[in-house]
């Protein structure tokens, strides 16, 4: 990686280092020079790790996978913003051109009791998987695929369900929420199914099971500050939370 040019920057990083869940962590300072503005944020961390390895220092662990903004693996609290300062953007799609020479960047893992730190910036987000396993699915018989247009769904309903279905389960909502609440995630997953006819047979039990599991996992409660919506890289609306609250009340009182 030898792309040195006059636009390259020197960045001062403060990164959370924690060897394991059992050990205490702390912020470490690193200075990284020759950072290209065209690099993605994760490529900048790759460059940091190359430098650390050359210096015989343990590289910084961080989550990533597709680096295309669709898998939900990358995380990182960057200067107090989940996924960084750019709206509707995952960390992997954030680029160093957002920063200028000499900037200090504080990088922390998602902070939540339900997301314990595995190492450095990597957290265990399996609490989301457990919530999904509690009800985030539709039970269907296997067999031949049904006709694509066999079930008529209004465009506005399909759009609303699609908005909810955009959730990539990254956990930015939990990280940004001052209470560490997972309401936006659960509401999106409940909504995407409850809005569609295929999700109706299990609609009542689904919302109850998923909320019960969410509580069990130790997430906080929603105080309607909408931090989650602002941090969500997919822009999922808190209106889905209102819908889930409505569905939960209906299912608890009527069924």
């Amino acid at each position: 990686m030898n792309n040195s040019n006059k636009n390259n920057m020197t960045i001062h990083l403060k990164v959370w280092r924690q060897a394991s869940n059992k050990e205490k962590g702390k912020m470490e300072s690193y200075t990284l020079s020759d950072v290209s503005p065209d690099m993605s944020f994760l490529e900048m961390l790759d460059q940091l790790n190359l430098k650390l390895m050359k210096e015989k220092i343990e590289p910084v662990s961080f989550d990533h996978d597709c680096r295309e903004g669709i898998c939900g693996m990358c995380s990182l609290m960057i200067n107090g913003h989940a996924h960084g300062p750019q709206l509707l953007t995952t960390t992997c799609q954030l680029h160093m051109r957002e920063y200028k020479d000499g900037d200090e960047i504080v990088i922390e893992p998602w902070r939540s009791r339900a997301f314990p730190v595995v190492k450095d910036l990597v957290v265990d987000r399996s609490a989301f998987d457990k919530i999904m396993a509690a009800g985030g699915f539709v039970s269907v018989n296997t067999g031949s695929a049904p006709d694509a247009n066999g079930t008529a769904i209004a465009k506005v309903v399909a759009d609303e369900a699609m908005d909810a279905a955009q959730c990539i389960g990254c956990g930015a909502c939990v990280a940004a929420c001052e209470n560490g609440s997972a309401m936006l995630f659960v509401a999106a997953k409940v909504s995407q199914l409850s809005l569609l006819p295929q999700g109706q047979p299990e609609a009542a039990s689904r919302v109850k099971s998923m909320v019960a599991k969410m509580d069990e996992m130790g997430f906080g409660n929603c105080t309607n500050h909408s931090e989650c919506m602002a941090a969500c890289p997919k822009g999922i609306s808190v209106e889905h939370i209102a819908r889930m609250n409505r569905d939960f009340l209906k299912s608890s009182l009527l069924q």
Partner: peptide
């Protein structure tokens, strides 16, 4: 609920900014 919310994040952020549309002096 407030106590549960405090418990949900035992380790605080070193740096945290708020910018939710519902975040204001009334809500906080």
């Amino acid at each position: 609920l407030n106590w549960e919310n405090k418990m949900a994040r035992p380790q605080k952020y070193v740096k945290k900014k708020t910018f939710g549309p519902g975040e204001n002096i009334f809500s906080s």
